[in-house]
Structures are given as structure tokens and as C-alpha cells.
Nucleic acid binder design. Sequence first.
DNA 1: GATGAATGAGTGTTCATTCAT
DNA 2: TATGAATGAACACTCATTCAT
Lengths: 232, 232, 232, 232
Amino acid sequence: MSPTPSSPSTAAGTKRERRKEARPGELLEAALDLFVEKGFAATRVDEVAARAGVSKGTLFLYFPSKEELFKAVVRENIAGRFAEWNNELENFAGTTSEVLRYCYQVWWERIGCTKASGITKLMLSEAQNFPEIVQFYQQEVILPGQALIRRILERGVARGEFRPMNPDYAVYLVLAPMIFLMLWKHSIGACVPDALGMTPEQYIDMQADNILHGLCVRSGTNPPAPSFSTPV
Amino acid sequence: MSPTPSSPSTAAGTKRERRKEARPGELLEAALDLFVEKGFAATRVDEVAARAGVSKGTLFLYFPSKEELFKAVVRENIAGRFAEWNNELENFAGTTSEVLRYCYQVWWERIGCTKASGITKLMLSEAQNFPEIVQFYQQEVILPGQALIRRILERGVARGEFRPMNPDYAVYLVLAPMIFLMLWKHSIGACVPDALGMTPEQYIDMQADNILHGLCVRSGTNPPAPSFSTPV
Amino acid sequence: MSPTPSSPSTAAGTKRERRKEARPGELLEAALDLFVEKGFAATRVDEVAARAGVSKGTLFLYFPSKEELFKAVVRENIAGRFAEWNNELENFAGTTSEVLRYCYQVWWERIGCTKASGITKLMLSEAQNFPEIVQFYQQEVILPGQALIRRILERGVARGEFRPMNPDYAVYLVLAPMIFLMLWKHSIGACVPDALGMTPEQYIDMQADNILHGLCVRSGTNPPAPSFSTPV
Amino acid sequence: MSPTPSSPSTAAGTKRERRKEARPGELLEAALDLFVEKGFAATRVDEVAARAGVSKGTLFLYFPSKEELFKAVVRENIAGRFAEWNNELENFAGTTSEVLRYCYQVWWERIGCTKASGITKLMLSEAQNFPEIVQFYQQEVILPGQALIRRILERGVARGEFRPMNPDYAVYLVLAPMIFLMLWKHSIGACVPDALGMTPEQYIDMQADNILHGLCVRSGTNPPAPSFSTPV
DNA sequence: GATGAATGAGTGTTCATTCAT
DNA sequence: TATGAATGAACACTCATTCAT
């Protein structure tokens, strides 16, 4: 006569079970928030647990140490987008300048202006203390990211839009301004709000203009020399 | 009839006095090492004192707090050098392109490739947790640094070498690659030595080429389009 | 078929729970002992914790700072009792002289001759160094204490037993001898046991006699002039 | 041909010598100030030395420890006045009530309202930590002080002005209000300036009135019943 | 599985005391 | 005699981690 227990596989189980299964995810989300906000050292596990609505002891049930929690956050939040992205850019029709600009734009919308940018900052910041994580990050994030950019550059060269270049080098022309912006946003920018002096979009446009001006062969279809005049 | 004792006031004094005068410098050096190596929060004042060969109490004799110690390190290694640099660059004879390249070179020699670059990384990494330090850094390092670059850009525009531009914006074209390099070096680069794929000098040349290509008006005296070919 | 485990929610719970509920009390008692014995500044929180049988960390689990621990001690032992005392004295039937004598007696039994009297001594001793605590003490102990005495005096005046007076002033006629006795006990008296030359009860009687002799209107029902003869 | 050194016994020596001889005194004065102001524990020997215009090391040349410095301050500042005082009061012409009031007045002028009152507060406060000093204080200050008061009371009884009494007890009727006032002034009064609610003079008058009212036999020459009305 | 009370090593900072000069 | 640089043992307070329930 007891009510048929809803099968956990069909209706996601009771509240308790659902919560149980959701625990690690809730903890990772809370940890992401706090690690991004305060950095690794300054984040307290009590606070992570509290924000996830569990006790401190429960956190240690799922993650054997603060360090492992941190690694799990990195794993959870960084890789996985590249497949989709690669696809998108591979199929993009248009000049390679447009591809590059689109790439910047997409990056800003999906990473740069979101919490996820904090992970990059956090990785760079706490790298020294967790060398093993850096290895992982290098394999799963940095190399795929560089490959993605490199493919764009090679496309430009192949189509005669960009000058011949060593794409392994030129990748950093594209990368550096993005990394810089994320870092600025999560450090100086968080303390001195208008320290940058312009909007992120203006910053990105300016950097893209300059990079493309350096990369492109001169022709009617290519962008004119950037002017950097105040748009305001 | 004993030999005249060397007057303590004349010749560098006793051992104790000599050590005393050297103390702040030794502490600053030890502090720089450790701050760069471990970050601000993770550096223990005991360790700084130990590395300088003094007791913890002695450190507090010279610096009233860990924070002030850090500020002193920043002043010693970065902030205090702007006057000299400004002078140097102000008196530089040559095209503004040459000034900018010289600026990059000097920066790399005196900051970028030294331990001092770690301070920049550290500031960006731990900014959020120590807002007071950020204010200090903003005033004593960032603003002077931006002003220095801006003056170069304005020189270029005034002399008709650079296109008209908003120098407050364009400053970041110069800044971002430098910051990126320092960060890379002290994070990924510290764990995966050859992750960058080129020497810092190559990186700098490449970035300078590209920037100048975007900035300069076209003329016979200005640099040709960068090629980014592998110099091996 | 195992015996029903006693529900933890019903019967005083497990050892751990029982201990947990007792912790604050045990800490307060240990703190009272040590504060009285050594003063506020000289009391170490480690020692308080040790005497309560817990670790230093545990103390800070219950009291956020040494200062708050002290305040809790004051509340537990003095400030929290005024409500009851006020009630008791308000409902006292008898002449106001009797009320005052009863007040002295009650004070001596519940404060003066107990460890709690040490708190008063401690407050007066260390006041200057901890102004914030003085504010607290002024609000939670001194003002209520004065109000209590003042109400007695006003009762006496209203009932024609005491001469007209400014009760704000006269309060100190009652207060000063009590304060003096507590101080003496915890300073000179602690080092030279018989320095006072009489028992505390004799001291109190004598002071009460003298005060009432000054306060009362002359009548048959009021106390005769005090004689201060040695009762041996 | 060197100038005759002025004999130190005649003209107090050169500045250097005079200062040298004055050192301990200057240190004691500085120590008195600071001990009274902040208490024993909270007074820093650096500060004492600085206020005396010498280095910390010099202080330890004259006093082997902070504790010994404290003892020296007590020795220097407390005894010595009693001979003069005894004389003065012994030769006082007038009623014993007047003697007692004069005693209060003199005490307030020369001790109560001066820094010296801080020593009493300080002795009572830090007594527990220095039992040996309490012995000394008992012999050199407390007993003479009590004797002085007792002699006044005995004079009053002998002249038929005061009722018969046990003067060893009654001494505290006179003492307690004085001690209380000094303590209040240096503790609560220092933090909450108007906490007493009246001037010290009003307080003293009130206490004297009340004591004398209790002590005196009734007659035309004796004070009337105190009224304690607000004089303002 | 989940709790949260308990821990104790470790922080930055202070200060009486020492001692080479 | 006088200095003041140097010390190091404390101190209040924190927090990742454990474990009995």
C-alpha cells in the first residue's frame, strides 16, 4: 500500500535523491563563483559549502581536498566548447578578416564577458602552486585554442588574404589582447572600474583593427588603416 | 700607544653598522624573491626574514606590515624607476618607431626578463584580495606607465610619423603584449618551459612589428609590412 | 530486532550533544575564573580554552573574540541578573531602611563574596585600555545598578522615610562602600588577608548604619545613631 | 690647562653630568605618567624611554626590568607626605568635624586631583601581579594613612564631638569614599567623562556631610542633617 | 550519506630584553 | 655610559581537515 516509489531513472527521483545527485554540481558551481571572485587561496571551503547549501563535511565527502575541488572546477568549466567552436568557424563563409573578427566577438560573448573568463585568470594566477593542473590546462585548453586560431591564420594565408607568416608565432598577436582583457577585468578592473578608459567592445575592435592591419595584404577589400579616433 | 682606532664615523663603521645599513635592501631582495615565487598571500613573513638572515621581529623593525613591505618592493623595483625612464625616453633622438622599439627593449631588459616582472603578475593575480594595494599600484605604476607610453604615441603623432589616434586607447596596443608576456612567463611558462614556442625577443619583435605596422603612416622611412617568418 | 535506539531528539542526546550544549557554560566559567584571577589583558585565550577542556579553536567557535567572551562573562554574571533583582526589590515589603539593608545583603551574597566581584575590580582596573568595554559596562551594569539604588532612595523619600535628596547624587553614598569592598578584597585583601581588620559583614553593617543614619528622618522607628563598637 | 671641572656637589656639574644624575628621575617621571595613563601592562618601555629622552637600552641600565621600574615608581611617589600631613592635622585648631573636612580637602588638592591619585588606582589594579609591592604599600602607605584618620576620629571622641566608636572600623567610613573617587576618576571617568553626574567637590562634600552626620553627637555646633539637594 | 563540533598548526604582529658597539 | 639593532617568545585569531554521531 505504500505509494510506488517513482523510479529514479524516470522522474529524477525524490527531492532528496535529486539533491544528492546534484550535490557535486552545486558545489562546483559555488566553487567556481568563489574561486573566480576571490582566487584560490582566499576562498574558504566553508563559504563554498555554505553557498552550495551543504555542510563543510559534505564538501569533503565529494572532494578530498580543496586542491582537488579546484582541479574539478577547472575540468568542469574549460574544455568541451572547442569542438562546437571549431565547427562553427570551419563553416564560416566570408573573408578571413571577418572570421577573425567573428572569432573575437564570439569569444567575448561566450567567455570574455562571462564568469568563465575568471577561470583563465585564476589558472594564470595560481599556476605556480599547482603545476600538475597547468599540464592539464596546456593539453586541454591552450593547445586546442592555439590550434583554432592558427587554423584561421592559415586559412587567411591560403586564400591570399593574409601575408605569409609563421602561424605558430602569429597566434600570440591574436591571443595576447584577449588574455590581457580578461586579466584586466578580473584584477585592476574589479578594483578601479574605469581604469581601462574604454568599453571592452572598443578595446576589442581596436585590437582587431590593428592586428588585421598588420596581417592583411593591401587591397581594396581589406580594412583601411585604423584611425583609433575617439568614437564618443 | 695603541694604533689609532679607525674613527667609526669615517670608514663605513663596524660590522654591525654595515649590516644595519644593508638590512632593508636584503629584506627587499628576499621579499621580491618570495613574493614573485609564491604570491603575496602565500608568502610568509617568517620566510622573508629567514631568507634575509634576520629574525621576524627585525623585519617589522624596517617595515611596519607585510603590506608595506610589498609596497616597498614595488617602489624599489618598478615605481621608483619611472623618473629615470621618462628622462631617457624624452631625450631619445630618432624616429618614434625607434623610440617605441627602444622602449620595448628597455622594458624587457630591466623588467620583463627580471624578477620584477613577477610583481606585475602578482598584482594582477591577487588584486581582488588586496584592494588597497591595487590603489597604490594604480597610482604608482599603472598611471605612470600609461603616461610614458602615451607620450611616445603623442610624439609620433605630433611628428607626423603615426596616424592620428586617441592615445588613451592606443596605449593598450603597446601594453597588452608586454603584460601578456610577463604573465605567460610566470604561469604557464614556469611549468611548461617552451610552451610559448619562441624566444621572448622574437615575441617582442613580432608584436612591435605588428603594432607599428598598424600605427605608422606609410612612407619610405617606416617599417615594411611584417612578415613573421620563422628566423630559426 | 535490535533494541530501539533512543531517539536523539528526545532524551538529552549523545555524549557529543550533551558536551556541545555545555560548552559555552564551561567556557564562561573558565573565563570568569581567569579574568578575575589575572585581569583581562593578562588572561590568555589558550588558557581559558584549556581550563574548559577544549582547544583554542573551539573557543572561537562560540565567542568571536576575546572581548566578546568577556562581555558574555559580564552578562552571565552581572548584567543578566538585574531584571530579577529589580523584581525582588520592587516587591519587597518593609521599611525602606530594610530594603536598603536587604539590598546590601543580597549584593554581598550574590556578587560581593563571589568571583563575580572580581569583574568589577577588573573593569575599574583595565578600563582605560579597553574603552569599548567600558561603554558596554556603563550601559549594561553601571546605569542599571545606579537605577536600582536610585529607585530605593526615591521609595524612601516618597514614603517619608528618607529626607528629601537628589537621588542621582546620593546613589554614590550607597555605591562607594560596595565598590571599595570589592576592590579591597581583590587587591590588598588578596595579598594581606586581614588587612581590612574586620569581616566583610561587619564592614557592610557599619557602612549601612552610617548611610541610613545620614539619610533617615529622625523618628522612633528609624535606626538609632550607629555606635561602631567592636562586636568581637 | 683643562678647565677646572666644576665640583658636582657644588654647582650640580655640567649639563652632561646633571643630565646623567637626573636620568633615573626623568625616567621615573615618565614612567609615572605612562603607568597612570595606561596601566602597567599597557605601558611600553619604549614609550617610557622615549618620553624621558633616552634610548630603551638606557632604561634597562637603570632598572633591570619593567617590574622593577614599576616598583621604583611606587617607592618614589607614595610615602613621605605623611610626616608633614600628620603635623598639619595635629596642630589644626577647630572642631574635629572641621579637621575631617579639612583632611578631605587637603587630600583632594594634593593627591586626589593630581596624578598621584593614579598610583593608588594602579596599586589596587595591579596588586595581584606584584604581591611583594602590596606588602610594601601596606606598610608605608596604608597603615600610616589609616593611623592618620584614626587619630582624627579619636580626637573627636576624646573631645566629645564624635560618638564612641571603634576607630579601626570607622576609618573605612572615611577611606572608602576617597578610594572610590580616585578609582572612578581613573577608570570609568576617563572613558565616560560625566558618568559621575556631579563635580568631585560636590561628591566629597556629600560624603563628608553624610559621614559626619553619622558620627557626630547631636548639638548646636554640629552639622545639620545633610540635604543632598542639587546645588546647581 | 550527511552533519557540524572540534581541532591545532600556522598566520601577522608586538614587545621586553639583550648586547655588540 | 649610552645606544639602538636584533631578538624570539608570545599573542589573538584562522581555517583546512577530521570524525563521532
